[in-house]
Design a protein around this nucleic acid. Structure first.
Length: 558
RNA sequence: GCGCCCGUAGCUCAGUUGGAUAGAGCAGCAGAUUUCUAAUCUGUUGGUCAGGGGUUCGAUUCCCUUCGGGCGCACCA
């Protein structure tokens, strides 16, 4: 449990005890007070209670303060102006906290998820080409959020959906066939709406290589590519090739899915038909104009949606019903769906499915990421596949590297449009916030490198052998920043906001850089040195945990 | 037309579910290097929180409205 939770629970107990009121720990604040204000932590609890108790907040604050003063780890309590209740903690308490963080990863964890299983689906790109920038944002955001949830008491499943069933896949297969036949001098053309990209020819070449002359000869003369018996092989080869490609890209990006879920498999296993029966039984299907419709308007959608087309084929939406049922059946308590900016019309549809299957709407959470604008030196780059200036995730990684890419993608709230400046991300300077963090870590590592000579036995700065009784301003601020991190991990989870964490880690680095500029670690006064090494050991662990969550590399040297 | 997101410092953005003097980074200005890495630090300039109305002890935050920007409104995926 984080220090903030511990203190909040203490306050909660006091309120219950004194006023017989149950307050949620999330209903009041406990945070660092503004500068010039006393105390290490301040709470607005008295103001929150003013209304229900019909009492002046200042008086409530004083009553709570009196009770707080009897608590173990509290040195002093002051009540300020309208009723802010500010606590000063005993340094001994900080020592215990830091020690916990050094000793075990569990000090960074919280129980927000209460062991619930959450399936978090992201990227889910069509398997017909390279991943783009929007997928990059989704990958970074989804993976980081999953990491945060891992620390917050959830059992996470990272999943991506492979749209290998529909029209896009079909067009891709036809495009590949045409390119393949062209390699043998035939004049087959890529369909009008097909995939014109050069990579299709590359895949065709790979296929030529692998399948050999015999395969080509078996095809013979065909006018209708789709009717050709070899069509399925092109489709399968293209799919496999692209998925491998996407997987390699994601690996470079530090993202690994637990499962790549095939849309086709839902049809083959009969799950689409099975899920249909459930919706049908609940009377949510009807026929109109020879098509089958789902009454999504019952659940707040603008219009009903087709699941089975006039030609008898299923829509993408139909697979989604089976897919959601599949996830639930696997024991998923909560489904998180991370979608691109052009999908906000899909939120109601997915919620409709959840409710149509007979579950509460709250079991699905759809997160819509806003668009990414790629800038180069402040100029907006217009991207279009047709114009050929389309930037793939591979190219982005090539040009700015994994660390900068991941950091830039999660440093802003998902509700905002993201300006991704390629120049800035490439730049190795103080303009680039990624280096600010990595530099802090490198400086830290350097201190420990130096410390090896002065302190042969690192247990000399274990918690039981140092004292935090006296702390200078910079030390105290750094210590406080460190011990607040586990609480921020929890808050990031609650808000589904990785950017909340990146901001706090940036502050943490800032406190350290300040500390570094002002105070020396390696020095004559051995007690002082050991104390600082102890604090920095906890800081190092904290950086490692946070970097791991964000997905950036802790570099020991820069 | 309807729906979703957004409008906060010159630029890019935070803003802890309605609370302390609205915060960072960059850019600008003035400083710091015989000391563990200056990719750093210290100080400083810059705000009618798009406009208007409402709710209340208190609004950047909630409600209504106007204006401005982005995206979406398929028997495509």
């Amino acid at each position: 449990m984080s220090i903030v939770e511990t203190l909040k629970n203490g306050i909660k107990a006091i309120v219950k005890n004194k006023y017989g009121l149950d307050v949620e720990t999330s209903s009041f604040d406990l945070a660092a007070p503004p500068e010039n204000q006393p105390g290490h932590f301040g709470s607005n609890i008295a103001m929150v209670l003013a209304k229900p108790l019909k009492k002046a907040p200042f008086l409530i604050g004083e009553e709570i303060a009196a009770a707080l003063k009897t608590m173990d780890h509290i040195a002093d309590v002051e009540v300020i102006k309208p009723g802010y209740t500010n606590l000063t903690l005993k340094h001994e308490f900080y020592k215990t906290e830091l020690d916990n963080m050094i000793r075990s990863d569990s000090a960074f964890k919280n129980d927000l998820g209460k062991g619930k299983t959450v399936n978090i689906e992201f990227v889910s790109a069509n398997p017909v080409g390279p991943l783009n920038i929007v997928s990059g944002r989704a990958a970074a955001y989804g993976d980081t959020l999953a990491n945060i949830l891992d620390y917050s008491g959830y059992r996470t499943v990272r999943e991506t959906y492979v749209n290998d069933f529909g029209r896009q896949m079909h067009l891709f297969a036809l495009s590949l066939m045409a390119r393949y036949l062209q390699l043998y001098g035939r004049n087959n053309q890529v369909p009008e709406e097909g995939y014109q990209g050069e990579y299709v020819t590359d895949i065709a070449k790979a296929m030529k290589e692998e399948k050999g002359e015999i395969f080509y000869k078996s095809i013979g003369e065909v006018s209708d590519l789709e009717a050709c018996p070899q069509y399925a092989q092109f489709r399968a080869f293209g799919l496999k090739h692209v998925l491998n490609w996407q997987n390699r890209t994601l690996e470079k990006f530090g993202v690994k899915f637990d499962r790549w879920f095939s849309e086709t498999s839902l049809h083959e296993s009969g799950e689409v038909a099975g899920a249909f029966k459930i919706i049908e039984k609940r009377g949510l299907f009807y026929e109109k104009e020879d098509a089958v419709w789902f009454k999504t308007t019952d659940f707040g959608d603008d219009k009903d949606r087709v699941v089975k087309k006039t030609d008898g084929g299923f829509t993408y939406f139909a697979s989604d019903i089976a897919y959601m049922q599949n996830k639930i059946k696997r024991g998923t308590d909560l489904i998180i769906n991370i979608l691109g900016p052009d999908h906000h019309g899909y939120v109601k549809r997915l919620e409709s499915i959840m409710q149509g299957l007979g579950y509460e709407k709250e079991r699905i959470r759809v997160i819509i990421l806003q668009q990414v604008n790629l800038l180069e030196g402040g100029e907006k780059m217009k991207m279009s596949k047709r114009a050929g200036n389309f930037v793939s995730l591979d190219e982005l990684l090539e040009s700015v590297g994994k660390d900068a890419a991941r950091y830039f993608f999660v440093m802003r709230s998902y509700t905002s449009h993201l300006d991704f400046d390629m120049e800035l991300a490439k730049e190795q300077s103080d303009k680039n916030p990624v280096y600010y963090l990595q530099y802090a870590y490198a400086r830290l590592c350097n201190i420990f490198e130096k410390a090896k000579e002065a302190v042969k036995d690192s247990t000399e700065y274990n918690a039981d052998r140092i004292s935090l009784d006296v702390l200078e301003k910079e030390e105290l601020e750094l210590v406080r920043a460190i011990i607040l991190i586990p609480g921020y991990i929890r808050e990031s989870a609650e808000r589904e906001a990785p950017n909340w964490l990146t901001e706090k880690v940036h502050f943490l680095a800032s406190f350290f850089h300040s500390f570094y500029g002002k105070l020396r670690v390696m020095q004559e006064d051995r007690g002082l040195m050991l104390k600082r090494l102890f604090i920095l050991k906890a800081l190092k662990r904290t950086f490692e945990v946070c970097f791991g969550i964000i997905g950036i590399t802790p570099r020991e040297k820069m």
